[in-house]
Write a protein that binds this DNA or RNA. Sequence first.
DNA 1: CAGATTCACGGTACTCAGTACCGTCGAGTA
DNA 2: TACTCGACGGTACTGAGTACCGTGAATCTG
Lengths: 226, 226
Amino acid sequence: MSTRERIVEAAFALCAERGFDATTVDDVARRAGVGRSTFFRSFASKEEVILPELDALLGAVEARLAAARPESDPNAAVLAVTEAARLVLQHYLDEGERARTRYHLVSSVPSLRTREVAGQIAFQRVFRTFLGTWLGPDAENELRAELVANAIVTGHNFVLRRWLRGLTDTPTEDFDAAMAMVRTVMPAPFGRAIAPSPTLADRARRVAADLEALLPALHDLGPPEE
Amino acid sequence: MSTRERIVEAAFALCAERGFDATTVDDVARRAGVGRSTFFRSFASKEEVILPELDALLGAVEARLAAARPESDPNAAVLAVTEAARLVLQHYLDEGERARTRYHLVSSVPSLRTREVAGQIAFQRVFRTFLGTWLGPDAENELRAELVANAIVTGHNFVLRRWLRGLTDTPTEDFDAAMAMVRTVMPAPFGRAIAPSPTLADRARRVAADLEALLPALHDLGPPEE
DNA sequence: CAGATTCACGGTACTCAGTACCGTCGAGTA
DNA sequence: TACTCGACGGTACTGAGTACCGTGAATCTG
């Protein structure tokens, strides 16, 4: 188990015992068997131990959006943002119980909640930036991009939260339904111009096309580093 | 000038000189001619000095929404949220230059930005809560309420930001236009079922009706306290 | 008017997050 | 063996936020 993982485990264990506020960084470091310096070398703040990997997720979303080729048709744009959001949802679904305990912790601690919200804003920003460049520079288009970006993130959060609270066992289906509603809510050239809910085959085709467009850039990057 | 105001003035002056991070609470208290205890008795945190009155604004918005009587027709609901958002915009417009200097400060200081975002979430929460109760309990309606609430706040922020950055001299007209676009983006029973842009007379009638509905509750409250 | 109460304020002392800096130990390298 | 490099632990510091107490002036009360 790496140093980072040991620290995370210690932090979650202590927070479960005494709560987040009553847990000091010294406590966590001692329980993890590391020095205080090492703690802050691994995590920028006390909050980041509970909410790590936001940056990694953000990078994944950005990569997915950068791989999209929406110049040809606006369908690809909608699909790209949808699939990028699905990436985030899937990440939390894969985490399973850890995501649920984190949710309850974050819900009850203001400083954690604030930190999480800051992360969501970062996601909205990425979506907005891409949508903005795809739509072109114009005050109206900027507002459109922002509305769509926020709608996507809101829809995603809605489904994720329901799953975290145990209100649904079919999060991916819910996500499809939520995105369908989000699409009805999109201004032109998105939304109503588009077929109501693309089939799985459609989605697969789109993703394949996007991936193909991504391949040259991937080759330029060379082999993975670690 | 009250103690609070003296502290705020001192804080803005010092932040203009050295920046927010380089300004300590002791500095602000000394410049304002008060003790450190008094500072934290007047403001809960260092950030709150730069971003005060968020709570007051939130209360005004809540009161405006509580005064709406949307049971009769959904038009009143859309109008209420629009006018409540306009309340916030107007507040910043009235502040004038102070709002602009605050904007530049907040934009460049992460901790202030985080605090501001937390405030926006609070606004979204209020809008969502009212819209949710108006729409009735149902998973789909909850999502609708959230989408509409976010769209309203997004539209408001968009216009406000453009005005703060000096990109427009007609913020109220821009706000009308933005809300028109937000309306096109609303799911049923809002949005497209509604006349595109209500006239001033319409708006006045609605506000008058809402106010009349509010009167009994006002009488119950008794005379103002200060 | 004298005594009691209230309250806003200043001062002190403390906890704890976050930063800067330094010394150390072990692994890889010439 | 001698050198470098990077991860680690330890120490000391700054500054936000909290808890608590004493004081003085204003207000209430008999």
